[in-house]
Amino acid sequence: MKIPASIRLTYRNIMVNMDTGTMVFMLGLPALYLLVMGSMFQTLISGVSVNGETISYTHFLGPGIVAMQTLTAGNIGGSMLWSDRRWGMFEQLLVGPFKRTDYLLGIMFVAIIFTLGGSFVMLVLSEAISGGFILTAISITLTVLALVIGTILFSALFLIISTIAKTMQAYNTITILLFFILDFASSIFYTITPQTPLPVRLMALGNPLTYVIDVVRNSLDYTPTISTLYDLLIISVITAILFAIARQLYQNIKMGI
């Protein structure tokens, strides 16, 4: 049976990312956030008020950590282009039996697989710590949809950086900075309320991760409303724009120079 080229490349991407470093980045770090940060803040914060309900901090943090996987896996996916260009594998693969589109799909697929796998682990961990998540067909579907779209969004973002960064230092600086801003100026660790300082609030509202988290949190903790669908629409539009830019920049990569 013929295996499609993009699936073979996905397998390759999984194999080359199955190392301790990537696993710590993908699972270890978020798990530590959940366990250490969650339990520490739990002792300081009596509860978090969301949608008129007060929930424990660890319960609040869980969906945020689940959604955070889109950023982490998106980074792993998008960074593959940088790494492959840097270490000669991009050209090597493209003189093999693959089209540029196959390579791009391979990156997207591996990022989605990593997101879904990582999210599942984080959800199980969150459920074990705080419990009480709503797992219905609708909540799971909306969560998966938000995670998949979010992953494509962040993969596209890191693909853009991979195509424009000229040096490893520049690439690393940009990604570290982006990680910090996207993680902390979002609703992963705290609620965005009118009391939130204006600059942080504006950054959080302009941060697509906030909307991914909102969809996941609303789906897993509450009954999804029309605003959940709006959030989904917002991330879909941003994804479409970023993906179009990433694809264009990717197609324009000159080889053999």
Partner: peptide, 26 residues
């Protein structure tokens, strides 16, 4: 088949480099 002048390899073991390539080439 192409052996490029520039270094090119996957960030995995020697064995896995060969295995992955075999899968890529079916």
């Amino acid at each position: 088949g192409v052996v490029q002048q520039a270094e090119s390899f996957d960030f995995t073991t020697v064995e896995n480099n060969l295995k992955v390539y075999a899968t890529l080439w079916e």
